[in-house]
C-alpha cells in the first residue's frame, strides 16, 4: 500500500516539476508548482511527518507561491523572455545535484543517525505533539523572541508603507 502511494506521489512530483520549467505561461508554471507542493506534503504524510506536511502546505503553497504569483503579475513577464541561455548553468547544477544524491544513496547505510530523540519515540507520541512540547518547554524563550521578530516585521512594514508620516502643519 505504502509503495503505491510513494510511486504515485513521486511520479506526480517529477511530472509537475518538469511542467514548471516546460510550460510557457508563468502562471501555469506557478500552478504546476502548487500541485507539486501538495504532493510533496503527501510524501511527508506517508513518512509520518504530519507536522512537516502541514508546514509544507501552509508555508510553501500558502505563502511562497502567492508571493511568486504576485511577482509574476506585478512584472507581467512575457513568456518568451523567460530563458536567458540558462542551459549551461542549469546543466552544471543538475549534474552536481545528481552526483550528490547518488553519493548520499551510497553512503546512507553507513552514515551516523542524527542526534536527539529517536524516530520511534516520535512515532509513539506523534511528532506534532513532540514539536509543540519542545517549543513550549525547552525552546520557549527563542519561540517568544521569534514572535517579537514577527511583530517588528509587521509594524515596520506598516510604518514604511503608511502615508503622511511627516507633519506638515506646524
Amino acid at each position: 500500500m505504502n509503495h503505491i502511494f510513494f510511486f504515485y506521489f513521486a511520479a506526480v512530483i517529477a511530472g509537475t516539476s518538469v511542467l514548471v520549467v516546460a510550460l510557457r505561461n508563468p502562471v501555469y508554471s506557478a500552478l504546476a508548482l502548487l500541485i507539486m507542493f501538495f504532493h510533496v506534503a503527501g510524501l511527508y504524510v506517508t513518512l509520518h511527518a504530519e507536522f512537516l506536511a502541514a508546514v509544507q502546505i501552509v508555508v510553501y503553497a500558502g505563502a511562497i507561491l502567492v508571493l511568486y504569483l504576485f511577482v509574476v503579475m506585478l512584472l507581467s513577464i512575457r513568456s518568451e523572455e523567460r530563458y536567458h541561455n540558462q542551459l549551461p548553468v542549469a546543466g552544471l547544477l543538475g549534474v552536481t545535484l545528481c552526483t550528490e544524491v547518488l553519493l548520499l544513496l551510497i553512503q546512507s547505510r553507513t552514515a551516523p543517525s542524527a542526534p536527539g530523540r529517536s524516530v520511534e519515540a516520535a512515532a509513539e507520541t506523534g511528532n506534532t505533539e513532540m514539536i509543540g512540547e519542545a517549543l513550549y518547554s525547552t525552546y520557549l524563550f527563542p519561540f517568544e523572541v521569534a514572535s517579537l521578530i514577527l511583530l517588528v516585521a509587521m509594524i515596520g512594514a506598516i510604518i514604511l508603507a503608511k502615508k503622511d508620516i511627516i507633519e506638515t502643519t506646524e
Binding site: 525552546y139 527563542p142 521569534a146 517588528v152 516585521a153 515596520g156
Partner: peptide, 25 residues
C-alpha cells in the same frame, strides 16, 4: 545558545532596517 543569539540579532537588525528608512521623503 546560538539559537537565541541568532534570533536576538534578527530582532535588532529588523528594527534597525525600519529605523534607517524613517526619513521617507
Amino acid at each position: 545558545d546560538l539559537l537565541t543569539i541568532y534570533l536576538g540579532t534578527e530582532l535588532m537588525s529588523l528594527s534597525l532596517y525600519v529605523m534607517a528608512g524613517l526619513k521617507r521623503t
